[in-house]
Simulated assay, not measured.
Amino acid sequence: MFTGIIEATGTIRRITGGRSLKMTIECPAILGDVKLGDSIAVDGTCLTVTHFTAETFDVDIITGTSDRTKFSAAQAGFTVNLERALMPSSRMGGHFVTGHIDKVAKVMRTFRQDNATVCHISLAPDDQPYIIDKGSIAVDGTSLTVFKLAPNYFEVQLIPETQRQTKLMQLKPGDAVHLEFDMLGKYVLKQKERV
């Protein structure tokens, strides 16, 4: 379980494989207390540490994960958002994020609005029920608020702290992003379908 509050950004140093991948990520800032088997959200995807050094950690990406994420197109040098798993004693600054990606979407437009950066992200019609105005959504693992919901996109706004702490400021039209819809909303919709 994660909060969507990004701790640091890292750099993919190596990625090998086809549909099953092995990835090495450099980010010494979060490795001080890492252990084998720890969960780290990489661009919002919950992955397990299989090896680590003082500078890097390795993760394996199985086909079920690579089929649902953008990692099959990742390359060495890519920047990724990172968050270690939530500890029971942590403050809950974002929202409940599981690290299970629902969709890969595309950035449609970015622009400045005073001190915020506004992003419009594509949304398929069948995903509309999972997003509500002023609701929460995780974009590349970052907990954000939906400011506008349109027929084919939703809008999020990046505050200055999010601009500094995440890689989201690097996004440009056409870039792929991981989406995780709000878990509580998904449960409510599932129960409604059963009634």
Rank of each mutant, 00 (worst) to 15 (best):
F57H: 03
Q165V: 07
D33L: 13
T162W: 00
G94Y: 00
F96W: 06
D60R: 05
R14P: 01
T11K: 14
I159S: 01
I131G: 00
D182P: 08
K167A: 15
H120K: 13
F181T: 11
Q128G: 02
Y187G: 01
L36V: 03
K106L: 15
T48Q: 10
R19A: 12
I12W: 11
L179M: 14
L47I: 04
L82Q: 09
E180M: 10
R19V: 11
R19E: 15
D60I: 08
L31Y: 04
F154H: 01
P160T: 00
S89C: 02
D133Y: 13
G93E: 08
S90T: 12
M1R: 06
I62R: 00
A54S: 15
D127K: 09
R84Q: 10
R194N: 12
R164A: 14
E180Y: 11
M108T: 09
I131T: 06
F111E: 14
V49C: 01
K134H: 12
D43L: 00
K172S: 13
T142Q: 05
K148P: 06
Q170T: 14
V97Q: 08
K167T: 12
G17F: 08
A41F: 03
R164I: 13
H51N: 14
S66V: 13
Y187P: 03
V139L: 06
S136N: 14
H51P: 02
S122Y: 04
F181E: 12
Q163P: 02
M183S: 11
D133T: 09
R68Y: 07
K70S: 15
N81C: 08
N81E: 10
A116Q: 07
F2W: 02
P173G: 06
H100R: 10
K70T: 13
P129L: 06
T11F: 06
T162H: 00
T48N: 05
G93L: 00
L168F: 01
L47V: 12
T69I: 08
P28Q: 07
Q128D: 06
C27R: 04
A176Y: 02
